[in-house]
Every structure is written in structure tokens, then in C-alpha cells.
């Protein structure tokens, strides 16, 4: 049962990443693209976790944790750059 659920969820998240990619390419503005990238990182975390469940190992969670941190810092840095034209004031 869990295998079927995993297949469904992985398909859903793959579709979600495709939708994010559409928004990333389409824009139309820079904040749209930042938002698309941020959502893509969150979807990638979900993908890694589901893959970890499928493989039956917890080693992937460290990658997910790192991705969560780096993705957040990246989003804030991009938004800050748009706001001020500079990241560290």
C-alpha cells in the first residue's frame, strides 16, 4: 500500500516541479522567479524525503536538511538584492 502511495506522491511532486519550472521560465517579474525557485526547493525536499522512505534509509535526510537551510538563505538573499541592490548592507 505504501509503495502505491509513494508512486502517486512522487508523480504529484514531479508534476509540481514542472509547474514551478513553467513559472520560473515565464516570469513575468523577478519576484515571481524567486518564488518559483523557493517552491522548487521545498518540492525538492519533499522528493528527497519520499525517496528516502522508498529506499528505506535515513541518510538522505541530512541532504534535505541542508537543502532547507541553503534554500531559505538563497531566497532571502535574492529578495534582499531586489529590495536594496545589495545583500549585505
Amino acid at each position: 500500500m505504501i509503495d502505491v502511495a509513494l508512486t502517486i506522491a512522487l508523480t504529484c511532486i514531479a508534476l509540481a516541479v514542472v509547474l514551478n519550472l513553467y513559472r520560473l521560465l515565464r516570469g513575468p517579474t523577478a519576484p515571481d522567479r524567486i518564488l518559483a525557485l523557493d517552491t522548487m526547493v521545498i518540492n525538492a525536499i519533499a522528493l528527497i524525503i519520499l525517496f528516502g522512505i522508498r529506499e528505506g534509509t535515513t541518510v538522505y535526510f541530512e541532504a534535505a536538511l541542508l537543502l532547507a537551510m541553503v534554500g531559505f538563505v538563497g531566497t532571502v538573499a535574492y529578495a534582499k538584492f531586489l529590495l536594496r541592490g545589495d545583500i549585505v548592507e
Binding site: 502511495a5 509540481a16 518564488l35 518540492n43
Partner: peptide
């Protein structure tokens, strides 16, 4: 319960991205 949560999680991720698009 686990299977339900996994499907729910995938569905919400898809809905959120659909909203974004």
C-alpha cells in the same frame, strides 16, 4: 495512515504549485 499522509502531502505540494502557475 502513513500511505494517506504521503498521498495528502503529494497532493498538497501539487496544489500549491498549481496555484503558483
Amino acid at each position: 495512515v502513513i500511505a494517506f499522509l504521503i498521498v495528502l502531502g503529494g497532493a498538497f505540494a501539487l496544489i500549491g504549485s498549481w496555484g503558483l502557475a
